[in-house]
Amino acid sequence: MSDKAALRRHLLDTRRRLTPEQRLSASLALADHALALPELASAETVAAYLSVGAEPGTRALVHSLHARGVRVLLPVLLADNDLDWAPYAGPEHLVPAGRGLLEPDGERLGPNAVTAADAVLLPGLAVDGHGMRLGRGGGSYDRVLARLTASGASPALVVLLYANEVVARVPVEPHDHPVQAVVTPDGVRRFGA
């Protein structure tokens, strides 16, 4: 088993052991810390995502950003694991999309819509002291990050995690990109350029 696979398995097992109460408490604290980020406070457009399963909860954060008047883009998973984007218009405009995912029922904006975001909130399983993020391994967000680089866009990249998922070292590959900050229920940690 690779280092990435072993770390993923360990972190996913730890997430599954969290109680519903622990998850709810973590999601509310995560939203409070994220909403205080200057990168989100000044953002006109934020590419976000709706958490599923035991992921750190993002629904309160997404709803709060939308209530502030921020244009929130949510991913729409394509058949090849790439991501299209659609604007969030409230919880009543979300539809089941398979794999436990919810997606907006509105207009699809295309995979390049993410390049207009001022900030991109990234799911992940871990981040290390250099800001290197470990994802789930599907490659969807690797494509997003490559698309941002290719377009010359430079939004704030923020990963949302549980506190124990900030680790000493994440195995990296040449296509991996660092993030500028991690938000956990315990607070915010920033990484150098």
Rank of each mutant, 00 (worst) to 15 (best):
M132C: 11
L83T: 04
L78H: 03
E173K: 11
G192K: 13
S140Y: 10
T184P: 10
L157E: 09
T58I: 01
R23W: 05
R190A: 13
R9A: 15
L134W: 02
L122A: 10
K4G: 04
L37W: 05
A126F: 01
G187Y: 02
A5V: 11
R17L: 13
A168E: 15
P96L: 10
S154A: 15
L160C: 07
G135T: 04
L65S: 03
L30P: 11
L12Y: 01
T115P: 08
L77W: 02
G106P: 04
A79S: 14
D13R: 12
D82G: 15
T149N: 06
L73H: 02
G152H: 03
D105F: 00
A6T: 12
V167D: 13
A6H: 05
R189K: 14
S25T: 14
V120G: 12
G90T: 08
H10A: 14
L65P: 05
R136M: 14
L73F: 07
V70Q: 01
Q180S: 15
T14V: 06
S154H: 12
R147Q: 11
Q22K: 00
P56S: 09
R8V: 06
N81P: 00
P96H: 11
E92I: 05
E21Y: 04
G129Q: 11
V46S: 07
L109G: 02
G100D: 02
A163T: 09
A26W: 03
D118Q: 12
H63V: 15
L18S: 06
A60I: 05
G131K: 02
T184C: 12
A116E: 14
V188A: 07
G100T: 01
L35E: 07
F191A: 11
A60Y: 08
L101Q: 04
V70H: 02
L122G: 09
L35Q: 08
V72C: 08
D186E: 14
S51V: 04
A79L: 10
V72M: 07
E92S: 12
D13A: 14
Y162A: 06
V114Y: 09
H10P: 00
T149M: 09
A41R: 14
A54I: 04
G135A: 07
D128H: 11
A48Q: 03
T45V: 15
A153R: 07
V72D: 10
A29N: 06
G69C: 10
A146F: 04
S2Q: 12
T115M: 06
A97C: 03
N81Y: 10
L50C: 02
L101P: 09
S51H: 13
A34S: 12
A34I: 08
A54R: 12
L157H: 03
L61Q: 02
V95R: 14
A116S: 14
E92V: 07
D32G: 06
P87E: 15
P174F: 09
V182A: 15
N112S: 15
Y88L: 08
A43P: 00
P75G: 08
E39G: 06
K4I: 07
T184L: 13
S2M: 13
D80E: 10
A26T: 01
S51A: 15
K4F: 09
